[in-house]
């Protein structure tokens, strides 16, 4: 073998080895591209729409939610009717869902005035329920035919349902502070003005 042929043969041998290495590498890369498969991802949306809720109710353990407030008379001539009777049989329950940072207020309104007499309402602080429960105004509030705020700063909350839950409502009947004794008269039947509670969006 002349030196030129020897050199070519040697070169081809080296090339064969290189080719084998390249081929092996190519196969490895090809197979590796399968084993190193990127994960596939897919996604979808879940949407939940929470609505606004504003419901309130009067709860009592009595048979009815009628508040009896009856001034008394001692029977002694020359003495006045005695006022100051109280009734705390009713409870104010509510559930409220508001938009973020919104607040609600509950007002109470007397259907019609009673001449010479005040119906006062004192809502208690609340100890039941969860969430941003309302704040009872410092009572007593003299009810009138104009709505009076009794619970303020109500956010998203619930009070629990039923008597002994929510705000206890204490009604008191009093003689008006001014000398209105002469305005007191016997009604045709019984004075029975309704008290209406309303929950509204606060401004």
């Amino acid at each position: 073998m002349n030196p030129i042929n020897y050199s070519l043969t040697r070169t081809f041998k080296i090339m064969k080895k290189s080719i084998f290495a390249i081929f092996t590498f190519a196969l490895f890369m090809g197979s590796n591209s399968v084993f190193a498969q990127d994960p596939a991802t897919a996604e979808h949306m879940v949407n939940v729409t929470v609505p606004e809720v504003a419901v309130l109710d009067i709860a009592t353990s009595s048979e009815s939610n009628i508040v009896e407030l009856n001034p008394t008379f001692t029977g002694e001539a020359g003495t006045p009717l005695v006022f100051g009777q109280q009734n705390d049989a009713l409870w104010l329950n509510y559930s409220s869902v508001v938009k973020a940072n919104k607040r609600r207020t509950i007002t109470a309104q007397l259907e019609a005035p009673i001449p010479g007499i005040d119906i006062k309402l004192t809502p208690s602080a609340i100890t039941t329920g969860k969430g941003k429960k309302g704040t009872a105004v410092a009572g007593p509030v003299i009810l009138s035919t104009t709505p009076s705020a009794i619970i303020t700063e109500i956010g998203t909350c619930y009070t629990e349902d039923g008597p002994s839950n929510g705000h206890k409502l204490t009604y008191t009947i009093t003689l008006q502070e001014a000398d209105t004794y002469d305005q007191i008269s016997v009604g045709e039947t019984t004075y029975a003005p309704k008290v209406t509670y309303t929950i509204t969006e606060a401004n």
């Binding site: 399968v34 949407n47 939940v48 929470v50 606004e52």
Partner: peptide
């Protein structure tokens, strides 16, 4: 050669309007 791909696919989504009538009693959750 392009590497074979794994493709995941999804059909559907879910939108839930929570019914406000579910609060049937004041004070309840």
């Amino acid at each position: 050669q392009p590497s074979p791909e794994l493709t995941a696919n999804i059909t559907g989504s879910w939108t839930l309007p929570v019914p406000s009538v579910d609060v049937t009693e004041a004070g309840n959750n």
